[in-house]
């Protein structure tokens, strides 16, 4: 690691002012991505601002059909929550036990790793991302590879999810890293069907062609007729774009079968 100044503010305001004053600061939440990056000297921030001591940023609360997850809530806590079983299931499959004991939802979605799990839920469960500055619709939040709608210095304080009538998350893990090669969250809310896909593209997205087909016929068989365009999908030694495209279909079917 390069040298940096470590800070552990106790309020959001203090954190933001430290960030504003830093030459090249970075927030630290769970650190599951940031710390390995620092260790390998792939980043050289001047200041690391640890959000871990700021009260009020953790916990899962349910209110009027909305589940609110504090930005610093660890994956293990979401995995143990009951309001949206599919979300808990998703969280229980992030990384490994140790990652789940440290990693946070805010850190995960602020990083916008194309292979992270949470983004599938953010786009599929009508999420709203609350930050220190504003609220961002889940569908507008991910903007590209490791890119989000967040501005400099903005901190994710909580993420609200709509409780669906039914939902299921299906993941095809990378055999080495256990990130998602493809992860699909299918949610049904009345007549509305959402299919959130992570792992396949530069960032999480909704598979609208699948949603339309499933809205017309919510059955696994409905997926068969949908041509999945994988031309822009990711490709690596673990899965070609074509295989990812195939997996999007397979996982969607399995999620639908779980719900239907």
């Amino acid at each position: 690691m390069y040298q940096f100044n470590y800070h552990r503010p106790s309020t959001l305001d203090e954190a933001r002012s430290l960030m504003a004053g830093a030459e090249d600061g970075v927030y630290l939440s769970g650190g599951m991505t940031l710390i390995p990056t620092l260790k390998q000297r792939l980043a050289s921030p001047s200041d690391v601002i640890d959000l871990g001591a700021i009260p009020g940023l953790t916990g899962v609360t349910v209110n009027d059909g909305t589940v609110s997850v504090g930005g610093m809530t660890r994956h293990s806590e979401v995995a143990a929550s009951e309001a949206i079983p599919a979300l808990a299931d998703l969280a229980s499959r992030i990384g490994d036990a140790h990652v789940r004991n440290r990693g946070t939802i805010g850190g995960s979605i602020a990083n916008s790793d194309p292979a992270a799990d949470y983004p599938a839920a953010v786009v599929a469960l009508g999420a709203t991302v609350h930050t220190t500055n504003r609220s961002i619709a889940g569908s507008d939040y991910f903007t590209g590879l490791f890119e989000t709608a967040l501005h400099d210095g903005e901190i994710v304080t909580s993420v609200d999810f709509c409780v669906p009538d039914a939902a299921a998350y299906e993941k095809f893990p990378n055999p080495a890293s256990r990130y998602a090669v493809v992860g699909v969250m299918v949610a049904r809310c009345g007549d509305c069907i959402c299919v959130g896909v992570t792992g396949a593209g530069a960032c999480a997205f909704r598979a609208t062609a699948l949603e339309e087909a499933l809205a017309a016929d919510f059955s696994p068989g409905a997926v068969d007729g949908v041509g999945i365009d994988h031309s822009e999908y990711n490709s690596d030694i673990h899965a070609s774009a074509e295989f990812r495209g195939h997996l999007v279909g397979v996982l969607t079917k399995r999620a639908v079968a779980t719900i239907a």
């Binding site: 990378n174 055999p175 080495a176 890293s177 990130y179 690596d236 030694i237 673990h238």
Partner: peptide, 8 residues
């Protein structure tokens, strides 16, 4: 495949 992220 130069790390445990890619070497299974």
């Amino acid at each position: 495949s130069g790390s445990y992220m890619d070497y299974t």
